[in-house]
Amino acid sequence: QGDIVVALYPYDGIHPDDLSFKKGEKMKVLEEHGEWWKAKSLLTKKEGFIPSNYVAKLN
């Protein structure tokens, strides 16, 4: 089961498979690959890669 993270900063995706998000948006982490994680937005239901240093895990 994936962790839920919250965006600390907004992110505008650079690549087509990036997931753009707004500050405060919550996402479910699907896979962790070093600095880039695959996640699904709980708001938009879209999936893509996010920079892990832009988010914090919720406990």
Rank of each mutant, 00 (worst) to 15 (best):
G13D: 02
N53E: 10
L42I: 07
Y11V: 02
E31I: 09
S52K: 15
S52Y: 10
I14F: 09
A39P: 00
L43A: 10
L8H: 04
M27D: 00
A56P: 02
E32I: 15
K22T: 10
K28W: 15
K57V: 11
H15V: 05
D17Q: 13
D3N: 13
V55N: 01
W37M: 15
G48M: 00
K28T: 10
K45Y: 13
L43G: 06
N59M: 12
K45C: 15
A7F: 01
G2L: 10
D17M: 11
Q1D: 12
D12P: 10
L43N: 07
V55L: 04
D3T: 15
D18S: 13
G2T: 10
K40Y: 12
L58Q: 07
G13Y: 01
N53V: 09
T44A: 03
F49D: 04
S20H: 06
E31P: 01
L8M: 08
F49K: 08
A7G: 08
F21N: 01
K57H: 10
V6H: 05
K28Y: 14
N53Y: 10
A39Q: 00
W36T: 09
S52Q: 11
E25F: 02
H15D: 08
Q1T: 14
L8T: 04
K40V: 14
G48L: 01
H15E: 07
S20Y: 04
V6S: 04
E31S: 12
K57Q: 08
V55W: 02
V5G: 02
L19T: 02
Y11H: 05
G24F: 06
Y9E: 07
G34P: 05
M27G: 00
K45M: 14
F49Y: 12
P16I: 09
P16H: 09
Y11G: 00
P10R: 13
L30R: 03
K22Q: 11
D12V: 15
K40T: 08
K46I: 07
D18G: 11
L58G: 06
K26W: 15
N59V: 13
S41H: 09
E32F: 14
E35S: 13
P51G: 02
F49H: 06
D12Y: 13
L30N: 03
S52H: 09
K38P: 02
E31Q: 10
K22C: 10
V5K: 00
L43I: 10
G2R: 09
A7K: 00
V29N: 01
G13S: 11
F49G: 04
E35Y: 15
V6P: 00
Q1M: 12
Q1V: 15
L58H: 07
W37E: 02
A39W: 02
A56M: 15
P16W: 08
Q1Y: 13
Y54G: 03
F21L: 01
H33I: 10
G2I: 10
A56E: 12
E31K: 08
K28E: 14
G24S: 04
K23L: 08
P16E: 10
L8N: 04
E31D: 09
L30I: 10
E25W: 04
V6W: 06
Y11A: 01
K40Q: 13
L30Q: 05
G13W: 03
E31L: 08
K46T: 06
H15Y: 12
V29Q: 02
V55M: 05
I4A: 03
T44V: 02
I4G: 03
P51E: 03
E35A: 13
A39I: 06
K22N: 08
E32D: 14
I50M: 03
K22H: 08
Y9L: 09
G24I: 00
V55T: 05
Y54W: 06
S20P: 08
L8R: 06
D17P: 07
K26R: 13
W36V: 10
E31R: 07
I4N: 03
Y11N: 03
K28N: 06
L19C: 03
M27C: 03
L42Y: 06
E32V: 15
K26G: 04
F49V: 07
K46M: 11
I14K: 12
K45P: 03
V6K: 05
N59W: 10
S52P: 12
E31F: 10
G2V: 10
A56H: 10
L58N: 06
E47L: 08
V5Q: 02
L30C: 07
L43D: 10
V6D: 02
F49P: 01
G48E: 00
T44M: 02
K23E: 08
G48R: 00
V6Y: 11
K45R: 12
F21S: 01
E25A: 04
L42V: 06
S52W: 09
Y9R: 14
V5I: 07
K46D: 07
K38G: 02
G2F: 13
K40C: 12
L58T: 09
K46G: 06
I50A: 02
I14D: 08
Y11W: 14
F49W: 15
G13T: 05
D17E: 12
D12N: 13
H33Q: 09
L58Y: 11
S41Y: 02
L42D: 03
G24V: 00
T44K: 02
S41N: 05
P16C: 11
P51D: 04
Y9T: 06
E32Y: 15
